[in-house]
Amino acid sequence: MVRLKDVARDAGVSVTTVSHVVNGTRRVAPATLARVQRAIAELGYRPDSIARALKSNRSHTLGMIVTAANNPFFAEIIRGVEDRCFANGYSLVLCNTDDADAKQLTYLQTLRDKRVDGLIVMTAHSGADFLAALARQPLPTVLMDADPAGAHDIAVVNDDSRLGARLAIEHLLSRGLRDIALLTGPASHPRSRERLAGAREALGEAGIVLPGSKVVATNLLADGGYRAMQALLQTRSCPQALFAFNDLVAIGAMRAAREHGLSLPDDLSVVGYDDIELGRYFTPALTTVHQPVYELGDMAVTQLIERLEHRRPLQRTLQLAPRLVVRESVRRDRLAEPKHPSR
Rank of each mutant, 00 (worst) to 15 (best):
L167V: 10
A68F: 11
D113G: 12
L318M: 15
L264G: 11
R38T: 12
P148D: 04
M122R: 14
A253L: 03
Q319N: 12
Y107A: 07
G24D: 08
N158A: 06
R195V: 02
H310W: 01
L43I: 03
A68N: 15
A68C: 12
Y294L: 08
D48G: 06
K214F: 09
M229K: 06
T25E: 00
G198M: 13
V142H: 01
A29H: 09
R52C: 11
S342E: 15
P239A: 05
A228C: 08
V116R: 00
V13D: 00
D333E: 11
V209P: 08
H260I: 07
E309A: 15
A165H: 03
Q240D: 09
L94V: 07
T25C: 02
R162K: 08
Q234D: 10
R3G: 09
A250K: 01
F86I: 14
V93G: 13
Y90S: 01
D117H: 13
R27M: 09
A124K: 10
R58L: 12
A151Y: 03
S49V: 11
V36R: 01
F73C: 04
V157C: 02
N158H: 09
T16R: 13
R136Y: 08
R46K: 12
I154Y: 04
K103R: 15
D98E: 04
M1G: 14
Y45M: 03
Q315E: 13
A29K: 09
I154M: 08
H152K: 09
V289C: 07
F282M: 03
G212I: 11
R79W: 05
